[in-house]
Design a protein around this nucleic acid. Structure first.
Lengths: 121, 121
DNA sequence: AGCTTATTCAACCAAACGGTTGACAGGCCG
DNA sequence: CGGCCTGTCAACCGTTTGGTTGAATAAGCT
């Protein structure tokens, strides 16, 4: 199996699974309740829930013969940490670039239009 | 093709691709430069970059015969928005649950130990 | 023009994915 | 006890994924 971060991202790459997570933010629910709105079989949803469970996004209880599914929101922090870390670095880099460009624009009088949006765009 | 959010999550579900993104927060780089540290073929990295590009995480320029790869950090906001939205909802729900539990504990004197951690755990 | 470098395209392969149907295990309830 | 839910396991199927090698395209360099 892959590392947890990979599993979390992979789990949320599927729209059905994202929808399941979204619905679980409202309330815990049993597998059948969760499966009801979709057109696929209960087994398919059971598999989706297993993926979410393996990623640590969800846990299952045991009430009578049902297994209420519960969202574990803490795992979101794992993603947020990764995303924020690199977003911050990327932004710092742009800030640095902006500074360099500003300096260049300062030293050299109106030469070329500032290539703030480079060859792409 | 799937929606962009799915493509972004799927793109970041691979450790090699996450590493590419991480390295691109430092500086733009050509395909060959990016491929150098890994043990796989350049073609494999080219494919990874295509996945990142299709997800909108990355764009390619054209300098001479090289195609410098550039990180598009804005797409991160798409994920952050999704994550924060549902994290917030989940947290609100816990707050509500806490309130309910507090009220119950208030009305009923020491009856059962508060089931703050339910059947799971 | 002709060679070289950088990158992608194409065909192929094994493994994983998302779905199906059918069988089976656990726990209620008449 | 016997049946009925609820949920999972197993086998199967078509598609996607991540990798390979080999050929093709594009833009310098001499």
């Amino acid at each position: 199996m892959a590392d947890q971060l990979s599993r979390v991202f992979a789990a949320l790459a599927d729209p059905t699974r994202r929808d399941l997570v979204a619905r679980l933010t409202v309330a815990d629910a049993t597998v059948n309740e969760l499966a009801e709105p979709y057109e696929v079989s209960v087994q398919a949803i059971s598999k989706h829930l297993k993926v979410l469970e393996d990623a640590g996004l969800v846990t299952k209880g045991r009430v009578a013969q049902t297994r209420p599914v519960h969202l574990e929101a803490e795992v979101f922090d794992l993603m947020t940490a990764w995303i924020e870390r690199y977003r911050r670095r990327a932004e710092q880099r742009y800030r640095r670039l902006d500074a360099v460009l500003a300096e260049i624009a300062d030293q050299t009088p109106p030469r070329t239009p500032p290539p703030t949006e480079g060859p792409r765009a």
